[in-house]
Amino acid sequence: MRRAGISSEARQGLTMIAPPFGYALLLLAAPLATIVAYSFFKDGYLTVIREFTLENYRAVWADPIFHRIMVRSLVVSALVTLVTVVLAFPVAYFLSFVVSPQRKSLWLFLITIPFWTSYLVRVFLWKVIMAPNGVINSAFLETGLIDSPFRMLNTVSAIVATLAHAYAPFAILPIFVALEKIDRSLLEAGRDLGETRLMTFWRVTLPLAMPGVIAAVLIVFIPTIGDYVTPTLIGGGKIPMIANMIQSQMLDQDNRPMGSALAVTAMLLVAICALVFLLLNRRFLRVRQ
Rank of each mutant, 00 (worst) to 15 (best):
A88C: 05
I136S: 12
I6G: 07
L26S: 00
A209F: 07
A92K: 05
L141Q: 13
P19G: 01
L206R: 02
F140I: 14
F170Y: 14
Y57A: 00
R288E: 15
L269K: 13
P64A: 04
S100I: 08
F89P: 07
P19L: 03
G236V: 01
A271C: 04
R122H: 09
P31D: 09
G13N: 01
L95Q: 00
L208C: 04
A158C: 05
A131W: 13
Q102I: 09
M152R: 01
A78N: 04
T117S: 03
P223Q: 06
A215Q: 07
F52H: 02
A166I: 14
F97R: 12
R203M: 15
S118D: 06
I234R: 12
T224A: 10
M1F: 12
S77I: 08
V80S: 03
F115V: 04
I246K: 02
L82F: 12
R72A: 07
I225C: 10
P19C: 04
R11A: 12
Y93V: 14
L26K: 06
H67W: 01
I175A: 02
W126C: 02
L163T: 10
P169E: 09
A161Y: 08
V264F: 02
P231H: 11
R50V: 01
M130C: 10
F124N: 02
V60K: 00
E51R: 06
S8Y: 02
H165G: 06
S8P: 02
D227E: 15
R3H: 09
T143I: 15
Q102K: 11
S185C: 07
G237I: 07
E51F: 03
Y93G: 04
